[in-house]
Amino acid sequence: MNTRKIEILVGLFVALGVAAFAVLALKVANSGISGSGETYTLNAKFENIGSLKTRAPIKVGGVVIGRVEGISIHPQEFVPVVAMSIDANYECQFSDTTSVSILTSGILGEQYLGISPVIASDSAKNTCLGNEVTNTSSDVDDLDDLFGVQSKALKDGDLVTDTKSALVLEELIGQFLFNQGSE
């Protein structure tokens, strides 16, 4: 009857609203879903971060694996420290010799962080994950053995030391002019 008609129309209205929500969530903002999973945080010190913003993407070979969580100044050294929140699947996968650089997408594009990963050794991975270190399978190819240094895998809260700062156009031009002048 009348009440029934109203109920149907209201149901239609609510369904439309939910459908709109689904469209917006899935079709318009895809990145949010994958970004809402578990993450771990790495820190990196830079000389200069240029115009890097929080929430800038962190990419490995162009694939987004995380976002910049926060940017602060190191309390003693007065250099910028970037906190990177990275997909937890990649925890303990990168060695501490991994380097991070601030890159620019296109000429006028946003700045992002590029990670050039060095894959951690199995023993380092296991130490990092808290597993017992088994020396039974001594890997001959392992770089650590080659250099006789023990490298570590990066886990939550670690600091990446190998960083490359942003290119700042003014500095580049200044350097160029300086070099020109000195010739």
Partner: peptide
């Protein structure tokens, strides 16, 4: 659009 729009 998808890369720029964040769900949260």
């Amino acid at each position: 659009m998808q890369s720029q729009v964040s769900f949260e």
